[in-house]
Design a protein around this nucleic acid. Structure first.
Lengths: 376, 376
DNA sequence: ATGCTAAAGGAAACCGGTGTCATTTGCAAG
DNA sequence: CTTGCAAATGACACCGGTTTCCTTTAGCAT
């Protein structure tokens, strides 16, 4: 008798040391347990419906092998009790979670958040939740970090955002672990089941054609960072459009950028030092385009009269500066939604035969930053 | 014998109907299972170390009741095998997940993302993951949505972002369910364990004092939406600063805004229609301050010569417009980190006695959008 | 030596689902 | 009237941890 009391005390200490969280809320939780209102389990449903656990499980999972009467009886009990299956138990039994991971290494907040929004729209009403996971592309342990994350959490699948999505090793890792994945990108990087792409190159061709149609021929380019697929695609679009118009430009009209505001300023400074200077600049993203505007103002240049500007992404900044920037909009939210649907289709009821598109098209948004060049 | 084969086929159908996901990757997963490399479980560790499951569990949970020899032996096996406890099994046994939820209803992408960054910094290296959950504050089912989310997922805790954090019912709901929570806010809304606050009011007092010190006395205010605590705090700061300087302004110098760019433009239009018009405008966030700048430009006003502007938040837009905006910066990332640490401290090893601050201080960032007013 | 206690560790139940396999029942064919 | 087979359902083990409770062992006073 005494030894029993002792043992209890011991284990109390043990528990305390384990996860020390004895605050006031614990008491509330205990009270909750006392009430009969604690959540019903599959056993409760089985008992109330007079069937076995397995039958309830079959109802939950829409097994076609059930008698209609049984199904309806169980469903009635489920409705009455408000029963919801415990996702942790399901995850354990299935060896797989109902979590979708979002892996990104991108500095563009708006892009990530729009992507999240699109994914969450697709996940809404399903049992899936979204887990975010930023990674450090520079880190030597990046791959093993992600591996640990995927293996430990046993995610259902992941959406990988650019630019880290361009890393083929990451995709291979997912394959190896058996984790579904969808990569977002500026061009087709993988097969249709694993990829959602925008057509950056075509969009840039359209943008540059527009500049040319307005009479520009000395057009500067602020490129994206080396090694980024989006940077390559956008630059190729630039070159294609010039080539088809028969315009040949000196190498000096192409400046390097890093997709940052500051790099946009620096690149613009070098471009505007040229003589004759360009009458228009295409920056490979809006951050840099905002830098172009900023740098132009610092020099007292008027935009668009003295310099036309086009950006890429249609982030909020593009419409908030003065003048608002002409830019390329790509359907981030729709792409996020599509990526998530690709992952979970087959696991959700109403998604029979829905094939999500893999390529999305961007559009040129014409605002006030482009006019014909001043007569020289 | 035949009936066995039949049953197998039946259950195969059953499984198919349940979660239909028979693609090529399934095969990979099966192959993985065949390899001996499949993840070790607590049973493997127990066997290899020659102890019981419970002892391994005690090692994992740092029970003080263990013999040092035993602990070291088990830890050695854990290291060798690279064993990591299965979070799903733990979640099931403990009745609680190792997931931190982020509940928000905010349109400000940069704020949410910075907050995520701060939280993830705190979570890094722990077993916790971050699950994001946007809610619709207008929706009638908001509370029951969140309830379902919390109960189903059995989250360890949640961080609630403004403005939804100001909803007391939400906090009560967390209490009732027994889910830890921390609310972020512009003023103290709850006790120190459940709250991380910035001092918006004081920050605005400082900003307005600065305008006054520059010689401004006709200062317009673009307020935030009714019902937002941050809007109230910032407005009070405005009034306090004017009162202490003995400045009395007509009611017409206060315009309503909704924290959006467009509402900033509209409010500015009404303020600049006044005669005499204000020489400075304080907008309660940067989005609206950008709207002020935009609207001023549309009228051909020079900023800052004809109109000084101060914003609030120091979002990227503040430094990317021309002229860059003087604004108030609050330490979002640090606050996010602190919120997460408040939640998990006690459950992580190295967090003994660390008490996280509950109030954070904002600073005025002086850029180019404020100069003394032109002599009238 | 004996008895008592505390420390250390193990056996088995449990968390709430799913998978495997067996059983019951109904019905058509032989 | 069996026999054979499919449909419907159930019993039970299992997923990988934690908790409860019990046993073994060692140390110490009597």
């Amino acid at each position: 008798m005494l030894s029993t009391a002792t043992a209890s005390r011991i284990e109390a200490v043990e528990a305390y040391s384990g996860h020390a969280c004895y605050d006031s809320r614990m008491k509330n939780a205990e009270k909750l347990n006392e009430t009969p209102a604690s959540k019903p389990t599959i056993n409760d449903i089985a008992r109330l419906a007079g069937v076995s656990k397995k039958t309830v499980s079959r109802v939950i999972n829409r097994s076609p092998l059930l008698n209609e009467d049984t199904r309806e009886r169980v469903e009635a009990v489920i409705r009455e009790t408000g029963y919801v299956p415990n996702p942790q138990a399901r995850a354990l039994a299935l060896g797989r979670n109902f979590l979708i991971g979002l892996i990104h290494d991108n500095p563009n907040a708006q892009m990530i958040l729009n992507m999240q929004q699109g994914i969450l729209e697709a996940l809404h009403g399903t049992e899936f939740e979204l887990v975010v996971r930023p990674v450090d592309r520079g880190s030597a342990t990046m791959l093993s970090d992600v591996r640990g994350f995927l293996e430990r959490q046993r995610l259902f699948g992941v959406v990988i955002l650019p630019p880290i999505s361009e890393n083929d090793q990451l995709a291979e890792l997912c394959d190896e672990i058996g984790c579904r994945y969808v990569r977002m990108g500026s061009a087709v990087l993988d097969d249709a089941d694993h990829m959602v792409a925008s057509n950056d190159r075509d969009a840039v061709v359209e943008a540059i054609r527009y500049l040319i149609s307005q009479g520009h021929s000395r057009i500067g380019l602020i490129a994206g960072p080396h090694g980024f697929r989006s940077a390559r695609e956008r630059r190729e679009g630039f070159e294609i459009a010039l080539a088809e118009a028969g315009i040949k430009l000196p190498r000096s009209l192409v400046a390097d950028g890093h997709y940052t505001f500051e790099s946009g300023i620096a690149a613009t400074d070098s471009l505007l030092d040229l003589s004759p200077r360009p009458t228009a600049i295409f920056a490979c993203n809006d951050e840099m385009a905002a830098g172009v505007l900023f740098a132009a103002r610092e020099r007292g240049l008027r935009v668009p009269e003295d310099l036309s500007i086009i950006g890429f992404d249609d982030t909020p900044i593009a419409s908030r500066v003065w003048p608002p920037l002409t830019t390329v909009r790509w359907p981030i939210i729709a792409m996020g939604r599509s990526a998530a649907l690709k992952l979970i289709s087959g696991s959700i009821a109403h998604a029979d035969e829905v094939t999500e598109p893999s390529t999305f098209f961007s559009t040129l948004i014409r605002r006030g930053s482009v006019v014909p060049p001043a007569k020289a």
